[in-house]
Amino acid sequence: MKYLLISILILFSNLQSLDLDQVRIAYKEAAQNPEKVDDFFNSMQSVTRTEDMELVAYKGAAIALKARNAKTLKDKKTGFIEGVSYIEFAIETEPNNIESRFIRLGIQENTPKLLKYKADIDRDKAFILTQLPYIKSTQLKNHIKDYILHSDSFTSEEKSVFSGR
């Protein structure tokens, strides 16, 4: 009986956990399509600050993206601050986590200057360019390369390394 209960709990926890590859895809879709933000936001609601820092950073991004669509300026600002707090927590907890830095870069690049959340763009960009060759996940590496090729923060020379030109 004890083993059956443990097996059921393990199975249930595996069904409840988020697949990081799917989260990456959902983030990219939500960042590009406002109609996908609610789905991404809802999928990240169960994430807590005790989980993998990549998921914590994605939860912050989901909150920040959701705030962008809020009706009032106050709700936009409050949501944005909450989202950024998750991203910053993830980076403070694991400063060498390239995925959290990548998420922060994406949010910073797409944030209005009014919110004053652009201070780490150059530092995150340099970190990403330095660490990109060491990423083991092909999906993450391709995800970041694709972002670099479409980003305004990266120079044509930096982009050409990834575009094969």
Rank of each mutant, 00 (worst) to 15 (best):
T130F: 11
L73Y: 13
Y3F: 08
Q16A: 10
V37R: 04
I81M: 04
I63S: 08
L105E: 05
N110R: 15
T138F: 08
P133K: 05
S153P: 04
L140I: 13
Y147V: 15
L18N: 01
G79N: 03
P95S: 07
L9N: 01
I135L: 12
K66W: 07
E88N: 13
G79P: 00
R68E: 09
K116D: 11
S160L: 05
D38I: 12
D146A: 15
V47Q: 05
T130M: 10
R24D: 03
K28N: 12
E157H: 09
H150I: 12
K2F: 11
I63Y: 01
K113T: 10
Y58A: 10
T50R: 14
D122G: 14
E29C: 12
D52C: 06
P34Q: 09
K118E: 13
L65N: 00
I25D: 15
T78M: 00
S163V: 11
T72N: 07
A31P: 05
D19I: 06
E109N: 03
S160W: 07
P95N: 05
F40K: 07
S153H: 06
T130W: 11
K113F: 11
I81V: 12
I144P: 04
T111Q: 00
I98L: 06
K136P: 06
R104T: 03
L9I: 02
F127C: 03
T138I: 12
K66D: 13
Y117F: 15
I63L: 12
N97T: 08
S151Q: 02
P34D: 05
P95L: 05
I81E: 02
